[in-house]
Design a binder for these strands. Structure first.
Lengths: 150, 150
DNA sequence: TCCTTTTGTTAGCTAAGCTAACTAATGTCC
DNA sequence: GGACATTAGTTAGCTTAGCTAACAAAAGGA
């Protein structure tokens, strides 16, 4: 532990960033296994989750939220509509736009998948002590705050 | 804070799992932006990183590490070879197998990309207090340990 | 030797990413 | 009101990444 004090402050930030980056990647890689049950690819799941948790959006806004170009989202929405997970509504004030909304079926399927992931992860937290769980909770809050100022 | 004590232990595990899951997704989504500079898709970056940090592997093992089927990895390796990021070596003891190894160019490009991501993330940790940084570090260790028993 | 298993590839499909070029609706300026 | 520019979404056509099925070649074992 003595070595820690020899690290400059900014080097320590890099170390922490590196470790969190690494565990985030590996965590999501493990949890991804549970998504195959939904029958949807990760891109669709992610787009659908934006609509479910963030409310209706235009195609352009949804594309931006997913960091994807409009044509890509256009086709993804087609697939989601075909499977009745999303429906489009006309926007009377601006008839160029479309309003994309998750259907009840879309909401249900997404939440089931989410529950599967969370349950699987929570399983593996069972052996942690209460104090360790508290550490994780605190870290989640800190990262959440950090992300807001990105 | 009083409400916390009304949660059962397993409910608290689910809450923590949910929050960590959520911040992990959003963190990686932000950092992904920096990967466009590498000119490689996420699948290639990820496969290459396994070779760089984990050493040479057979195609089958690399496919398993990436949770992908052998034909998928076969094509990905072709692309990586074409760009001289990976090379294949014969395994004299078993001539069915190939040994995949990252080239110096592959190593360099991957490490540059990784540095970009880490630096970008570390930037945003600058405003944290030392105590908060320590919380994040502790959490990363705990998650790392949890992942090992998946 | 002959059969089985293992490793990797090929063929052919779908989904997901991109840019370029288009249509339709809206906004602006005279 | 008409001409032009801007904005929203789609279409076309390309690449990459995922899959299964079917195959070839090497290794292993009866």
């Amino acid at each position: 532990m003595a070595r820690k004090s020899t690290l400059s402050f900014s080097a320590r930030q890099r170390v922490v960033a590196d470790r969190l980056h690494s565990v985030a990647i590996h965590l999501l890689r493990r949890l991804r296994v549970k998504d195959t049950a939904s029958g949807m690819g990760p891109a669709r799941l992610s787009a659908l989750s934006v609509l479910v948790f963030g409310g209706p959006l235009s195609l352009k806004d949804l594309a931006a939220a997913e960091q994807v170009q409009p044509p890509t989202m256009s086709r993804m929405v087609h697939g989601l509509e075909r499977d009745a997970l999303v429906r489009r509504e006309v926007v009377r004030e601006d008839r160029r736009k479309i309003r994309l909304r998750a259907t009840p079926k879309g909401i249900r399927i997404l939440q089931q998948g989410r529950r599967r992931r969370i349950a699987y992860f929570a399983e593996h937290l069972r052996n942690l002590k209460g104090e360790e769980l508290a550490s994780l909770e605190k870290a989640a809050d800190i990262i959440h705050r950090v992300l807001q100022q990105f």
